[in-house]
Amino acid sequence: MKVLLSIFHIVVCVALMGAVLLQQRKTGGFSGIFGGGTQADASGGQWQRFTTLTKLSVVLCAIFMATSLILVFLAG
């Protein structure tokens, strides 16, 4: 069980790295970090505006966190 979960975790890690590296770069630079966003950016329906790679990254990140927690509990 632990070995299969570890192998799955490694596959998810590699897939997450690939999904992040394949994404397009934003041209805004650091403008969004220091309050450059508007109230409209936080409105509902933003999930539909995400690209497929962004959605895939979010899902893979959630799976990565879940498998990390499960592996920690299995190790203890």
Rank of each mutant, 00 (worst) to 15 (best):
V20L: 08
V20M: 06
L21T: 04
L22R: 09
L22M: 01
L22C: 00
Q23I: 00
Q23Y: 01
Q23H: 00
Q24G: 04
R25F: 03
K26Q: 13
K26G: 09
T27F: 10
T27D: 13
G28A: 07
G29A: 03
F30N: 12
S31M: 05
S31F: 06
S31N: 11
I33A: 10
I33H: 07
F34E: 08
G35A: 08
G35R: 08
G35E: 04
G35Q: 09
G37P: 05
Q39C: 08
A40P: 02
A40F: 10
D41N: 13
D41T: 12
A42K: 14
A42V: 14
A42N: 14
A42L: 14
A42Q: 13
A42F: 15
A42R: 15
G44T: 10
G45I: 01
G45V: 03
Q46C: 06
Q46D: 07
Q46Y: 08
Q46M: 10
Q46G: 14
W47L: 14
W47S: 07
Q48N: 10
Q48A: 11
Q48V: 12
R49N: 12
R49H: 10
F50Q: 09
F50M: 10
F50S: 06
T51L: 04
T51H: 09
T51Y: 03
T51A: 03
T51F: 02
T52N: 05
T52Y: 02
L53Q: 06
T54K: 05
T54G: 05
T54Q: 13
T54I: 02
K55R: 11
K55V: 05
L56S: 02
S57A: 11
S57M: 04
V59T: 07
V59H: 02
L60F: 02
L60Y: 08
C61H: 09
A62G: 13
F64N: 06
F64S: 07
F64G: 00
M65V: 14
M65W: 14
